[in-house]
């Protein structure tokens, strides 16, 4: 059983400042979890600590019941795919992939069988005698993945594995990663700063900020129910409005109007996505505003609207084209509002 638990993990580069502190994360066996967050929040640090390149200064890294935090990197048997792929330039594709097995003193014919098997899965058999310098980005990526998987790792760790690929390859590769991960049923941590990438293939997502996990949940929940202002902002709630709770389920906005939404004690802000704001001419409109800027986003238009609540971003489908200077009426439907306490 390879259920991973990070328990009160502490990590520091210099022994003074803890980059990660009281870090907790639990990953079920065979699940793929993404860690998402802005640059410098500690994603790579987390991965390095789990991998063992950084010695954690406190806490536990449990796989099943066994604590791995003191096990040396080369004894951990985790598969790691590096951002630069880190293929050995002096070895062919075949040698790269077989390296880990050779170190394990596995008989030669068995190595050959395993390596050819996995190269077949990642469709690289034809290139097995090439050197990494003669491979394309996507091919290198697959070699790196095969090399990490062939050792039957307890855990697969991927640090921004797709960031060096172009947009089309990225989509292809991410489904390949997902396929492989499911085929081998391997517990996986994927580091990324691409929201779409991580939502599309993850079982769960951990949103990190400043060395802490802000929210750990399924992609669907994070998308529609962010638990903090940071997460809401990070996952595209463009409109964040200050509120005070005046009675259960009723909040007062900065322009003095009241709004109804799900009840949250200590609510500080409400968040709403541009596409959840209803644009219309009906008389019972909530607020009014003037369109300042219009941007075309392919499927819809997005408008920056000046209102007495400040600037509000709304979007409409292509069918309804409004112009700069138009005065429009906006409604905030109750189920599109997300109430945030922190």
């Amino acid at each position: 059983m390879a259920r991973l638990v990070l328990n009160d993990l502490k990590v520091s580069y210099d022994g003074k400042v803890n980059i990660l502190e009281d870090y907790n994360l639990e990953i079920e066996d065979g699940k793929l979890v993404s860690i998402l967050g802005p640059s410098g929040c500690g994603k790579t640090t987390t991965l390095k600590a789990v991998a063992g390149f950084l010695q954690s200064t406190g806490g536990e890294i449990l796989i099943g019941d066994e604590d791995y935090s003191k096990v040396p990197v080369n004894k951990r048997n985790f598969g790691i795919v590096f951002q630069s792929y880190a293929l050995f330039p002096n070895m062919t594709v075949f040698e790269n992939v077989s390296y880990g097995l050779k170190l394990r003193k596995i008989p030669k014919d068995e190595i050959e069988k395993k390596v050819l098997d996995i190269l077949e899965t990642v469709e690289l058999i034809a290139l097995k005698d090439r050197k990494p310098e003669n491979l394309s980005g996507g091919q290198r990526q697959r070699v790196a993945l095969a090399r990490a998987l062939v050792i039957s790792p307890k855990l697969l760790l991927l640090d921004e594995p797709l960031s060096n690929l172009d947009a089309k390859l990225r989509i292809e590769m991410r489904s390949q990663i997902k396929r492989m991960q499911q085929k081998f049923n391997i517990t996986t941590i994927l580091i990324t700063h691409d929201q779409e990438e991580c939502f599309s293939i993850s079982d769960k997502v951990a949103i990190m900020n400043d060395g802490k996990i802000e929210q750990y949940d399924t992609p669907e929940n994070i998308y529609s129910n962010p638990k903090s202002i940071f997460v809401a902002d990070f996952v595209g709630f463009k409109n964040l409005l200050d509120v005070t709770r005046i009675s259960p389920g009723v909040y007062r906005l900065s322009n003095g109007k009241n709004i109804e939404a799900e009840d949250v004690e200590n609510a500080k802000k409400i968040a709403i996505r541009p596409q959840n704001i209803a644009v219309g001419q009906s008389s019972d409109s909530f607020i009014e505003g003037t369109i300042k800027v219009r941007t075309y986003l392919g499927e819809d238009y997005q408008y920056e609207v000046d209102t007495d609540l400040g600037e509000i971003v709304v979007s409409t489908s292509k069918a309804i084209a409004l112009n700069t200077g138009d005065i429009i009426k906006l409604n905030f439907p109750k189920d599109g509002i997300c109430v945030l306490a922190s």
């Binding site: 990197v73 080369n74 951990r76 985790f78 790691i80 590096f82 090399r147 990490a148």
Partner: peptide, 11 residues
């Protein structure tokens, strides 16, 4: 990273 890769593979 190349060194790290080697070590992570068990070297």
């Amino acid at each position: 990273e190349i060194e790290d890769a080697s070590i992570s593979l068990g070297a």
